[in-house]
Design a protein around this nucleic acid. Structure first.
Lengths: 152, 152
DNA sequence: GGGCGAGGTCGATGGCGTCCACGGACTGTA
DNA sequence: TACAGTCCGTGGACGCCATCGACCTCGCCC
């Protein structure tokens, strides 16, 4: 994990479809060398995936909500997690410090679907209560912060 | 935006580095046809970007926090937004319904850096108060939900 | 000094991206 | 029905790219 690896990660966070040849030009190595480095970043768990970022409205997912979950005392956190994982609307799931154990980011098409999701969440064993905030608009999301020349 | 476009979007959300030839095989078209469709999805704003998803800890961003912001009455929301945008630690920014106008997701390397960020946020003109929750762990993030055969 | 491993370059080759010309289906008009 | 125009696809061609293997260089350890 040297400066060149960080540069590759930065480049791929900005545009995951850059060719190895282009990456090679940018970091000043040959294409096979870059190919091997990126392969190691992938298998070493640094690069988890390559994803196209989609404008949610255009695929019928116009409603974004953030839902905080208070767990039942004595709930099995793993079971709760598994139940959340089975709900595809839940895009992100953070385990939080504080009274509210989880914060979920959910994306649905309509307010009606959001309502159904909240009902399902409240019915989930281990969930004591939910608190939902609706995002009126997403100013930006998952902006990659340059990690540039840093320590490690 | 027909079923084939949706399939392409799904495939690219799952793996942004699929070749056009591979996409073509999956959807049953020729490579040039897929190339043109994807090009239209990009220029039409459906596909916003292609990003490598990185394990944050491995690039020195091990601390995730969610920060709610209450605006001053009379604050200029655009100015506040611009100030947020200038802080690279803020990965996502949602404009929310409720007392707290914004929800920010920030990623930093250490608690000390988080403290500095919060200080800067509180000093920002237009910001009345902040409320920070720390994510102890990220169970998952930006999981693409299949949009499959849907309406539109 | 000599062997070894990590990590690089170079060269070759097959597949891919991308441009272009062409063709069939659908639509609106006479 | 016949015709022209448009949209959207296919197939072929060509140059670039991904990827493999052979070799090279440097630093390290015995």
């Amino acid at each position: 994990m040297d400066a060149i690896d960080l540069a590759l990660v930065d480049l791929l966070r900005g545009n995951a479809r850059l060719s190895y040849a282009e990456l090679a030009r940018q970091v000043g190595l040959s294409a096979p060398a870059v190919h091997e480095r990126v392969g190691k970043l992938e298998s070493g768990g640094v690069i988890r995936a390559y994803r196209a970022e989609v404008e949610p409205e255009t695929v019928g997912l116009g409603v974004t909500a953030l839902i905080s979950i208070v767990e039942d005392s004595g709930a099995d956190t793993d079971d709760v997690l598994e139940a959340f994982r089975a709900m595809p609307e839940i895009e992100s799931c953070y385990f939080m410090a504080g009274v509210e154990s989880f914060l979920l980011k959910a994306r649905v098409g309509t307010i009606a679907e959001l309502e159904q999701l909240i009902v399902r969440l409240n019915r989930t064993p281990g969930v004591a209560s939910t608190r939902t905030s609706i995002a009126l608009s997403t100013k930006w999301e998952n902006r990659p912060q340059p990690v540039g020349p840093s320590s490690s």
